[in-house]
Write a protein that binds this DNA or RNA. Sequence first.
DNA 1: ACCTCGATTTAGACTCGTTCTAACTCCTGC
DNA 2: GCAGGAGTTAGAACGAGTCTAAATCGAGGT
Lengths: 138, 138
Amino acid sequence: MPVAPLIERLEARRWRITPQRRAVAETLVGEHVHLSADEVFSRARTGFPDISRATVYNTLNELVAMGEVGEVRSPTGPVLYDPNGTDRHHHLVCTGCGTLFDVRPEGVDALHLAPGQRHGFRVEDVEVVFRGRCGTCP
Amino acid sequence: MPVAPLIERLEARRWRITPQRRAVAETLVGEHVHLSADEVFSRARTGFPDISRATVYNTLNELVAMGEVGEVRSPTGPVLYDPNGTDRHHHLVCTGCGTLFDVRPEGVDALHLAPGQRHGFRVEDVEVVFRGRCGTCP
DNA sequence: ACCTCGATTTAGACTCGTTCTAACTCCTGC
DNA sequence: GCAGGAGTTAGAACGAGTCTAAATCGAGGT
């Protein structure tokens, strides 16, 4: 999934593509990319050295609000941004180093909450996080 | 589940029960109790006015490390402490106000990760979070 | 071309939740 | 009764993120 489609989707929304916003969008390309705002900031600076931290946060928050980018609130550590915004998927997190992968677990559709346990909620989403140790953490 | 069993378990571990630690432990009693460190701090002060914030954090972290208390890292907002530390259970969170309930969803045991998706991890735990709107949030 | 005005960007101050530090006090075992 | 470690404390420091107020940009109208 190259950058063009994301940029094109943003143009189709008549969203102004400034050089700063382009620099942010271009960092978010690839498979299994999960960058923190700070990583996005430092990478975006290589393409646009004067971009400010606030602009990176503004842009990421707008991309998330538009649904073009997903945010993963890793239980410990900063929010990670996931360019694969539309696909439903879940996560596998290393409790040692925080490494995070997307996964597509079987059976999540079958998860449901018995009416007696809904506490008056309208349930909208289920998130599944698998925790474990990655190959390099003891 | 009254306070005594928790205090007794702590004594059984030969953990020194100081007045400060007792004040913290006593705030964490009841069903569906999910307090933030700050709420624990202010409640503990009613029983022990000179307790410091650092002691509350120290004590909560030790209780979590011992497994006597669970911590729920609500995706937004502070960590919540759950005295129901041993029971496996999952959570239902309101995306509006952050209200949080314990739930016991069916079918979680069936969740598993296909070997091809394990990315070399040793999976140790699955956490399921249901998101929705509670009765009072629009 | 030239204004105008809202959209965008910026640096830095600020907030929140949490951890760290270094000094202090209190037990516990000898 | 004393030494030394365990526990406590206030406040500084921290990391992530938001907010503010001022500067700058650029698209649409003339």
